[in-house]
Simulated scan of single mutants.
Amino acid sequence: MKHLISAFLLLASGTAFAQSDLKQNELSINGFRNPSIGFEYRHNQYSANVGYYTTAFKRGEFSNFVKVGYTFWFFPSGNGPIPSSFYAGSSYMRGLNRNYEGKNALGTEVGYRWVVWKGLNLRIGAIGVSAKGQSFKVNPTPGISYSITL
């Protein structure tokens, strides 16, 4: 089932959803969790991100990862220089502690980025994480970022 969900998310990010409103380059500084605490560079409908990711699969027990990912943006809305948009992505994650320490994991996520004011944006989504020897887990992924166009 987890592979079916991952395959669906990757297929959903195909060019059938490409939009012409996402034509600029953008650099984002991500300050909380989605896609990670780090940096993201977007060119047209595609972006790459790198950073530190933390999540609680169990209440009060945080699992930490280094995360490198790729995202596809679709269905932009709004008239500003940076549009709000839906996204789907996939990430390589390397566990840093708890049950994931030293393990490789795959993260697949979907959600929506709402540009609140100028470059300030909020994200809400969900991530599915799979790793060898661990059960497939799904968690919400809120985020806050600041983006500038290049």
Results as ranks from 00 to 15, higher is better:
F8A: 15
G107A: 13
Q134A: 06
S28P: 02
G102C: 04
G102K: 11
V50T: 07
S20N: 13
R33F: 10
S85L: 05
I127A: 13
N49L: 01
A126T: 12
Y112T: 06
P81T: 12
P76M: 04
K58R: 14
R123F: 05
V138K: 06
I29D: 02
F74G: 08
S90E: 09
N34C: 03
E101G: 09
S85V: 12
Y46A: 12
V110A: 15
P81N: 10
V115T: 06
V138W: 04
P35R: 05
F136I: 05
K118A: 06
T141K: 13
W114D: 00
N139Y: 08
Y46G: 01
V138R: 04
F8C: 14
W114L: 15
L27A: 14
R98N: 15
T141E: 10
Y41F: 14
I82A: 02
Y53R: 04
V116Y: 08
H43L: 09
A56M: 08
N25E: 13
G95T: 03
N121I: 01
I144W: 00
P142L: 03
G69A: 07
Y70S: 10
G111F: 10
T71N: 13
S135E: 14
K137F: 07
R59L: 05
Q19L: 04
Y41V: 09
L10A: 09
S90A: 14
P35T: 08
S20K: 15
I5D: 03
P142K: 08
G38Q: 06
G107Q: 05
F74Q: 01
S147D: 02
Y70H: 11
S130N: 14
S91V: 02
L27T: 07
D21T: 08
I148N: 05
G69Q: 00
V110G: 07
A18S: 12
N139H: 07
P83W: 04
K23P: 01
N97P: 04
F8W: 07
L96C: 04
N25R: 12
N49E: 01
P83Q: 09
R98S: 15
S85H: 14
N25C: 00
F57W: 10
F65G: 07
P81S: 12
L10T: 15
S6H: 14
A12S: 11
F136Q: 06
L96F: 00
G102A: 13
